[in-house]
């Protein structure tokens, strides 16, 4: 197995190759990289791979913005079931 097949986002099975190619083709920001590939959009909410997406997005250019978190966090930060949301007692 080569580096290319290496998975970065475990939830959505997005590979290193796919992310690097997307970055090179579109020169995208971390957010665009996420939206184009679904990396960071899976079950864990990007808790595992967000740092790696950031690093790939910074490849070749873009100095780190040190005052704002680069990928937005949105509630709920943990998955909530509809049963719980609807207040249905189990």
């Amino acid at each position: 197995m080569q580096n290319e097949k290496m998975i970065v986002c475990r939830c959505e099975e997005v590979t290193y190759k796919e992310l690097m190619e997307t970055k090179k083709t579109y020169n995208c920001s971390a957010r665009e990289l996420k939206l184009r590939t679904r990396a960071g959009m899976g079950y864990c909410g990007g808790r595992t791979c967000r740092g790696m997406i950031d690093k790939i997005a910074m490849f070749q250019d873009s100095p780190k913005n040190n005052k704002e978190v680069s990928l937005k966090y949105q509630p709920p930060i943990r998955p909530v079931s509809f049963t719980d949301l609807g207040g249905v007692k189990q």
Partner: peptide, 8 residues
């Protein structure tokens, strides 16, 4: 995490 081929 540090990704390595096969780390899943």
């Amino acid at each position: 995490p540090v990704p390595v081929p096969g780390w899943t």
